[in-house]
Amino acid sequence: MSFFDGLKFRRVDSAVHLMDPRVKFFYVLAIFVIAILFHELIPLIILFLVQIPLVILARVKREWLRSLRGAAFLATVIFGTNLLFRFIYGGYSLIPSDVEHASAMTLRFLVLVESFSIFFLTTSPDHLGLALEQSHIPYEFCFAFTTAVRFVPVLAEEAQTIMDAQKARGLELEKGNFLKRIRNYIPILIPLIISAIRRSLELAEAMESRAWGAIQKRTNLYVLGLKATDYSMILISSLILVIGVYIRFSISIPSFST
């Protein structure tokens, strides 16, 4: 499960957690657009730093750092390939601006990771499902989404149990070449799928027993409403967007290397 830890929601009592997911999604989009507009290092550094107060406000510093650490490998790959291309296109030589460009591309990636991790770390899947629902997405789809999220830990645990059981029966997962290794997983997948099917039948039964589909217009225990914090977040995101676009098209950006 450690793979998901950097994006896994944990309930914290903070203003950011209470924000409407749609507002946070708008924020992610704004950051995304601006990050794509710039390929210079300085604005991307600023874009990276502006988001840190939000992380502190949301009290998810540790998880956020973990998500960045999780992205470190990909970031290195991005840095390396960018440098390599510059090296090849520049006639097999590197100048300082090449390094700056590669760093900017890497930072752009990190800015995106940063905003996505803020979104996922502070948005409960429940709220996300609700946001989908209130965006007029059919309820069946929203229900499928939240139920899928609900069963991720259950299935992960079950997969582990089956793996242990099959290993105890002498199954060796890490043996053989690539294809053989994939085939090794069949004795794990089949019980997992069968049990998932049984589970879904039982779920359907339980849903029916609780008046699923009784009326067309079902109600909801929670409703999302925009609060003062949501409006200020919309304002901040819009400002980032406007200022970013303005700078892009009317100010020339200084660089470290020229």
Binding site: S124, M207, A211
Partner: peptide, 15 residues
Amino acid sequence: FALSVEKDVAFGLEN
């Protein structure tokens, strides 16, 4: 089905 206890308890009523 739900991701929190109270939401789950409310499921039937929502329906």
